[in-house]
Design a protein around this nucleic acid. Structure first.
Ligand SMILES: [Zn+2]
Ligand SMILES: [Zn+2]
Ligand SMILES: [Zn+2]
Ligand SMILES: [Zn+2]
Lengths: 132, 132
DNA sequence: AACGTTATGTAATAATATAACATTTATAAG
DNA sequence: CTTATAAATGTTATATTATTACATAACGTT
């Protein structure tokens, strides 16, 4: 069960926007889109993004400097994330594959390092773009 | 066998710097360090970095906006990369684990997408930082 | 009410990355 | 050697992404 976190005003505005967009959004595009709602400064956006990432409502797509709503209802915190990214149309989707996440969560090597978090990004061509 | 690519002047200066540093370096830190060698503008650095990434001599650590020399002699192109990152001291090392790379290179799901590339970043605490 | 914590507002600035254009150097073919 | 082509360089300006610093307000608990 996902704990219902009580989002603040700015957090809610920004989460709703990203969620409705259905894809990754960049910080300044978010800013542009919420200015009519009174959010005027980059920092207001980044603060809300930070919190939303922290509680797992959104994830950052590191290779794109963009943020996407969690598509996996069980992601409470952003600690084990995997995405597929189309290099042509830039479509992004969150991969939720229990075998993959088990494999990676249990991964260890001989470095003596304990891994508590990972982020994986796959790149390629989506179905649509392949057939062009 | 790794093809010996003939690096240009700027590419060589920048690769040598990153390689000698032994860890990840940021673009503007690189710029600062090569100014005495006549490389004066960000674009000169970014162009060399782009090429070095393309041919696999360095990789970009996406979550840190930093670049590290390839520690795995067989990485001809940056198409299958995995790193471990200490969240305390920011030490980064390239993971070369053939099981892991096989598993990820062969990964496929029912999305219909063909993956040609991936990047994986593990986060945690390194041996040293754990024992503090 | 008093307190500590979280969120907000605002301005300025830092850090990261690319666009546009002119020129030079390297590579390969004829 | 000459011409053509691609790759690399130099330079200026600018775009994009993200944080610092400081002041104020709202929220949750006792
Ligand atoms: Zn998720
Ligand atoms: Zn596509
Ligand atoms: Zn490598
Ligand atoms: Zn460490």
């Amino acid at each position: 069960m996902q704990k219902e976190y009580n989002l603040s005003k700015n957090q809610k505005i920004i989460f709703d926007l990203i969620d409705k967009s259905g894809g990754p959004m960049k910080a300044y595009s978010i800013l542009f889109n919420v200015q009519k709602k009174g959010i005027k400064a980059p920092l207001q956006v980044y603060r809300a993004l930070d919190k939303l990432v922290e509680i797992g409502k959104i994830h950052k797509i590191e290779s794109r400097n963009a943020f996407i709503a969690c598509q996996n209802s069980s992601c409470q915190i952003s600690k084990a994330t995997a995405f597929s990214i189309c290099e042509s149309c830039e479509n992004v989707s969150e991969i939720s594959n229990s075998k993959l996440s088990k494999y990676l969560s249990n991964f260890s090597d001989n470095s003596g390092m304990k891994y508590s978090k990972y982020n994986l990004e796959f790149f390629g061509l989506c179905k649509k773009c392949k057939s062009k």
